[in-house]
């Protein structure tokens, strides 16, 4: 998202422009120096991402309980995955969560970003928006459990003053997923707003001037100028937040632990339980690979649909 900055002009792919301007010079081979600079990051990537990824995929073809050697079982874990109703139920729960979480979060974050952009220059106020993000997921989850406790929670106390019966926010199967989704909206909206806000700052003032001259109102300007120009930024924000949202785990683990009755048994939680409670690391790995494939497909579709690599500016 730093690809576009006001100083480099309106073109998104400004690198080609600068390259063309620089005077031709005899090239030195920088490969060795480059490799040296890349090495530390590459080592980290290899040890902490690539190797676990490869090993995870390998384990998905085995029967492995951590304590005895892994035993190759071919596609058995994947056959089980296709036939496992709890997996698909869990997938549905996760998608429901993602739709609620991302849908609400993006709209709220957009509104906050626009407000920050148009109404205030105060750094303090902009900083305050980010504060929920500074609280860890676990702490946020636990605090909301207390606030929304059916018996003793402040939240239900306030509802009772309004004449509303206590709601089992985390204990009612219809409420649990929306509640968790909203807790995470609360936590992440500031951060997402900041990303969008940074994107807004890159939009040139000239197009707004042109819009005003053409007599476009606030709403029209937003939908016809801001939103289209913000598309690459929004695509990136959505790809990042959707992937993050699919990986929801800690908030669920500390608030409902998957209950009531699998109502909040999101995929990561099911995978975790399968591995660390039921010792079925092979099947848990297969489900992780399944999630990887789903996320890969969603990201590609999103990338295509939003044409994230091109900009309308220029």
């Amino acid at each position: 998202m730093t690809a576009v900055s006001p100083s480099t002009g309106p073109r998104a792919s400004s690198s080609t422009a600068t390259e063309a301007q620089s005077p031709p010079r005899k090239r030195r081979d920088d490969t060795r120096v480059a490799l040296m600079f890349i090495a530390p990051a590459a080592l980290g990537l290899g040890v902490f991402l690539l190797w676990p990824l490869i090993r995870g995929i390998w384990l998905s073809f085995t029967d492995y309980n951590l304590l005895t050697p892994a035993e190759f079982v071919g596609l058995a874990n994947y056959r089980r995955l296709i036939a496992d109703p709890i997996f698909w139920d869990s997938m549905k729960t996760t998608v429901y969560y993602v739709v609620l979480n991302i849908g609400i979060q993006t709209v709220v974050a957009m509104i906050i970003a626009l407000l920050m952009y148009r109404l205030t220059q105060s750094t303090l106020l902009r900083g305050l928006v980010l504060t929920p993000y500074l609280v860890s997921n676990v702490v946020a989850g636990l605090v909301w459990v207390w606030i929304l406790d059916t018996q003793f929670g402040v939240g239900n106390q306030i509802l009772s003053w309004l004449g509303i019966d206590p709601i089992g926010f985390f204990t009612d199967s219809a409420w649990a997923i929306p509640t968790i989704a909203l807790v995470n909206v609360w936590r992440h909206m500031g951060y997402t707003a900041l990303l969008i806000f940074a994107g807004l700052q890159t939009l040139p003032a000239s197009v707004y001037e042109a819009a005003r001259l053409d007599g476009a109102g606030e709403v029209r300007t937003f939908f016809s100028v801001t939103l289209p120009l913000l598309r690459p930024i929004m695509a990136l924000v959505l790809i990042m937040t959707i992937i993050g949202s699919f990986q929801v785990f800690d908030t669920v683990a500390v608030t409902t632990a998957g209950g009531p009755a699998n109502a909040t048994n999101v995929l990561q939680l099911y995978i975790y339980d399968m591995a660390f409670d039921r010792f079925q690391f092979g099947y848990a790995s297969a489900m992780s690979v399944g999630l990887l494939i789903v996320l890969g497909i969603i990201t590609v579709i999103q990338y295509r649909l939003s044409r994230a690599d091109t900009s309308d500016m220029g």
Binding site: T171, D172, S173, G258, G259, P260, A261, N262, N265, D273, M274, D277, R278, F279
Partner: peptide
């Protein structure tokens, strides 16, 4: 045992809650 508990726990929750 762990598998049985993993399957029955949500079931009993459902019976009580719904």
């Amino acid at each position: 045992g762990a598998d049985v508990t993993a399957l029955t726990t949500p079931a009993f929750q459902e019976i009580w809650s719904d």
